[in-house]
Amino acid sequence: MRKTILLITLLILTISSIFVGVQSISIMDVFDLDSNQSLILWSTRVPRTISLIIAGATASVCGLIMQHLTQNKFVSPTTAGTMDSARLGILVVMIFFPNASNINRSLIAFIFSFLGSLLFIQLINLLPHKNQVMVPLIGLMFGNIIGSVVTFFAYQFQLIQNMSSWLQGNFATVSRNGYELIYVSVPLLLIAYVYAYQFTLVGMGRDMASSLGLNYRLIQLFGLGIVAIASSVMLVTIGNLPFLGIVIPNLVSLYMGDQMKQTLWVTAGAGSAFLIFCDIISRVIIQPFEVPVSLVVGIIGSVIFIILLLKGGEK
């Protein structure tokens, strides 16, 4: 029932996303477009909507995986240093290989984000008692340290403006030939689904997972790898989307529990719907101009985040 409602919502939002914009294209004359409308539809609206669906799904599933890998509800690529490490990678690319392609950029970003998240996992393993609040706090601090290194060198090399554009998720620049890299996330989501049961086991902690025959470290590394690739691709093609990876998995968990095999696609769908919704707002709020979608995601996301925190505190 809930799944059906989600699916219908997603469908309605997808259709609205395709037909909302400065250039009016009516859903009525889909089969009778002039060449200009057709160009806009196929070179920006459709790519934009597809990338929104994929990015929303990827960001929330990445968060979900990270939460299981760290046994903490408030960890996501944005609060575990993953995103900041990826940015460090991009900075390195900009300094040393300014003409690198998007694929190479993602590759370097992936290596950095993987190592960064690995370091984070090692850090929290050192914590004597994994406090629910301490872990994301350490993640934020860790991310900020890397972030300040990035800022320092970006400043030295006069790349500040260029770098800060990587910070903000923005779909306005998405058009044909340039966003296709994000399709890499689709097979990653499928792999994540295949291993969803294992990730849930990791979420039960090292001792429990090991005694049930799971190679804990291996699955943890594997999960981190998936998250690092997906996050890097996201950062290179779209940018950073704050809170999405925390808010959506937590909301879904509230209603559907934490067995990832049951919740992965719902989390993905809810992430897509939420992101499309935010993107439509970002497009209509100051028409004919746009605000970056990360701004809208950040505002709505942080409000939900605070509500979740307060609700969690009541228990």
Partner: peptide
């Protein structure tokens, strides 16, 4: 894991699982 099972004293599982889902994990090996 098929030969030997252990249950420790404190199990900090803070996942929202049903009892059946939890018991089903025993079949994982």
């Amino acid at each position: 894991a098929k030969k030997l099972a252990i249950l420790k004293q404190s199990n900090h599982v803070n996942l929202k699982l049903t009892i059946r889902e939890l018991v089903a994990f025993g079949r994982f090996p």
